[in-house]
Design a protein around this nucleic acid. Structure first.
Lengths: 340, 340
DNA sequence: CCTGGAAACGTAACCGATAACGATTGCAGT
DNA sequence: ACTGCAATCGTTATCGGTTACGTTTCCAGG
């Protein structure tokens, strides 16, 4: 009587086929040294029992598992884009992808969460990991590629050209005639946030304008963090005529706050974001923003990690992808500006 | 000399602490029978080596792993919502979540992909799995919860009240005065798609209207599949005055096609979708749609799976969540209708 | 018929952790 | 000092595979 309740193991197959587990393994993995007749028997037994090799057992024994890991601390809409890109980069490459998320620290901050997750996986399950927007430096025996790494990291990473993107965005506002431009920053430990703030400062500096620290709010990429900051900026006696937010999520919150406070966009206030998430194209007015394709970041990260694992990576270990300015309705010349 | 390149194993810790691996295991898992002094030694060794237990080895040996799996064949924007819901349901529950995606069959159809994935995981790695929009019936030794299951399945599942939602949507259009209402269906093997079509038919039937099969297009939930169908419906000599699409993704494509063909919405054509994805709130005009919170589907599925695993599930094994009609700008009375 | 060697297959160690079980230690009671 | 029982800790089998290595089979060549 065949046990239907428990999943078939390799020794089940071996027993049914009348061979040893070693032979079954050889058949499954296509190794040399098995007669055609035996192969047929084993395949038949596999078919009959519906056998599938256990990912865990295989991973434990093998050095290479052909599984890549992706670790993220939360699922935002951009996370789905990263996943799509990574999946497509891995399509038909022989590598599978595992996304691991520890629910015990979901959403909340926890020192070194990436390291803990990566270590748990990399010992055996995965050949390497992609870490999305880490909070700290991560090390591992197996290769790691960071998307939006921490500042100063020399580890392999993929990131957008945040400096150039932010500079272009602020230059766009300056070109429209804005002179008082607020900035809402991202998590300062991330290189991306730092570069975007640098771009903001650089554009003002190059235009010969002073940098007013009171116009800079310390956000953390969490959309909600922008709400009090935007409110503070707009309720000043001398509110800025434009606000540049370090992420679209925060910029969308700026739009909400502006509407609540009776500011019309772009009449009273221009708003520019960074990321170009899908929602930004669909607001009214549309959000002017810097396009960084999370899809491509995920794609490149996966491509790079795969090559690092197989040891055939040739390119630079720190990839910077170009950005583009997407001009929509949320940015316009400040009120009272004479057209040239 | 300490080996820094390889990850520390339990026997490394045991060696440094001068105890056996069994004792280390007892310390790690908080079992009874270890002296305070030994615990301190072991903890110190763990700290020193940066040891993290291997998920794989633990999974292989233990019967319970406290890891739940989620299997999906592609990552759409709604997938991120499901993941968010599942993560929050598992928050601080002691269960972790692993999403497994096989790159070899990503995006493309493959008979029994869910079964293959689930079997690979459920033997050892996971205590149970959530399967998102399966293409076929899935069985496993460990519990499985399907989100939007196949038709006729009696396995545990979570789904929205698709029948009532679709009926309400079409009644809304009928109430506005529409009489020729096109429908773009979803993948017919899914219970969700079938129920939505049933709702469409039921609403027409109850209104005493005939059902015109030529007004029904066979889509498959893939947004692109709606493009030729919408084009066909709108290029007829007698196009419908309204189109109800079985998903927002397809409905948004209908909006695009309508714009291309010079139809104004809602002037020439009303469009209603199903799902209420974020993008639907932000189009111009906004998409009238049936709200089914993928977040809640993910949340309930995870909650149910967790309880099934721990054996404390009390409720029904087939959960149906209510839907709500969200009326936005894309639906209005047909042109030439006299207001009451 | 005998030998050699390659092909085919089995045996067993092993990956890292867990847990049943056995062995040792320490201390109270006599 | 000796016994007895906990408390503590080590030994070992085991999870499901993989693979180095050893053994058997089989056929060609002498």
């Amino acid at each position: 009587m065949i046990e239907v309740n428990a999943p078939a193991t390799m020794s089940d197959v071996a027993r049914v086929a009348g061979v040893s587990t070693a032979t079954v393994s050889r058949v499954v993995n296509g190794h040399y040294g098995v007669s055609a007749r035996t192969i047929a028997q084993v395949r038949s037994a596999i078919e009959q029992l519906g056998y599938e090799s256990s990912l865990v057992a295989t991973s434990l024994r093998r050095s290479r598992t052909n599984v890549l890991g992706l670790v993220t601390h939360s699922f935002q809409s951009y996370t789905a884009e990263v996943l799509k890109g990574a999946m497509n980069a891995l399509s038909r490459s022989g590598f599978d992808l595992i996304i691991y998320a520890n629910s015990d620290l979901y959403g909340s901050y926890s020192e070194g969460w990436e390291k803990r997750h990566v270590t748990r996986l990399s010992g055996t399950l995965t050949d390497g990991c992609i870490v999305v927007t880490p909070w700290g430096e991560v090390q591992s025996r197996t290769p790691i590629v960071a998307i939006d790494p921490v500042r100063g990291s020399t580890a392999p990473s993929v990131t957008a050209d945040n400096l150039a993107g932010a500079t272009t965005a602020v230059e766009h506002l300056l070109g429209l005639g804005h002179r008082r431009i607020g900035f809402i920053a991202g998590r300062s430990s991330l290189a991306a946030a730092w570069s975007r703030e640098e771009g903001y400062r650089a554009a003002l500096r190059d235009a010969g304008l002073p940098i007013d620290p009171t116009l800079i709010g310390e956000g953390d990429f969490n959309p909600e963090s922008a709400v009090p900051l935007a409110r503070a900026l707009l309720q000043r006696a001398d509110p800025p005529t434009a606000i540049f937010a370090a992420s679209d999520g925060m910029a969308l919150k700026v739009l909400e706050v502006a509407a609540q406070l009776g500011f019309s966009v772009p009449g009273d206030l221009s708003v520019v974001g960074f990321d170009n998430i899908p929602e930004s194209a669909l607001t009214d007015p549309g959000l002017t923003t810097v396009d960084q394709s999370m899809y491509h970041l995920g794609y490149e990260a996966a491509r790079m990690l795969k090559s690092l694992v197989t040891g055939e990576w040739e390119g630079p270990r720190q990839v910077v992808l170009p950005t583009g300015l997407v001009i929509r309705g949320s940015s316009a010349p400040p009120r009272g500006t004479a057209r040239g």
